[in-house]
């Protein structure tokens, strides 16, 4: 339930509201961190669930906002919206976590695969795509979720992840190829 009728403050664009809030966070105003959380946490939790898995999402988002509290002063509006900046922090945190957990994660995924092939339902494309997504490498999954689910452009994703745009294009291409191969291989 929202309360638009109660908004007595002059209308600012969401980006302006976020920029102001980040400035306040940079000055130690944690209520502004709460406001940013209220505006973005749910979307970030969904993103983290897709990119990292549901079980990790809360930890990742907690780390994201704690990081925001520390580095809010480094945000300048020139490198994208505050929202994409937040996504970038979340995405990089997921990658950092996964680098250290990579071996473990791979083992878990392999376990998942063993049973995945026994599944032969014909109308389960969504399940297939979900499985396919989980089988992608972390790097590919991150890029395709940011591009196809969150709707970011490759330029924005390159900024977020701090990697060259060519790398994003390559990862995206391979992610689509892997997903289509998996999808077509299991659904026909």
């Amino acid at each position: 339930m929202t309360v638009p009728a109660l908004r007595l403050v002059p209308k600012l664009t969401p980006q302006a509201v976020d920029t102001v809030a980040l400035g306040r966070v940079a000055n130690g105003d944690l209520s502004a961190l709460g406001e940013l959380y209220d505006r973005h946490a749910r979307a970030l939790l969904r993103f983290a669930s897709r990119a990292a898995g549901q079980h990790e999402a809360e930890d990742v988002i907690q780390a994201t906002f704690l990081k925001v509290a520390k580095v809010a002063s480094t945000y300048d509006g020139r490198s994208g919206t505050a929202r994409s900046w937040l996504y970038g922090i979340t995405a990089r945190l997921i990658q950092e976590r996964h680098r250290s957990l990579a071996r473990f994660a791979r083992a878990v995924l392999r376990l998942g695969e063993a049973s995945a092939h026994a599944f032969t339902a014909t109308d389960a494309h969504r399940l297939d795509i979900d499985r396919g997504l989980r089988r992608l490498s972390d790097a590919k999954r991150m890029v395709i979720v940011l591009a196809e689910v969150e709707g970011y452009t490759c330029d924005e994703i390159a900024l977020m992840l701090k990697v060259p745009i060519g790398t994003i294009w390559t990862r995206l291409h391979h992610a689509r190829k892997d997903l289509r191969a998996f999808y077509e291989g299991t659904s026909s």
């Binding site: 969904r46 969504r126 795509i129 999808y183």
Partner: peptide
């Protein structure tokens, strides 16, 4: 279609 399916991947809301 791939994009659509990806967007439809179930994420149970918190």
């Amino acid at each position: 279609r791939l994009g659509l399916l990806l967007r439809e991947v179930e994420v149970s809301p918190d």
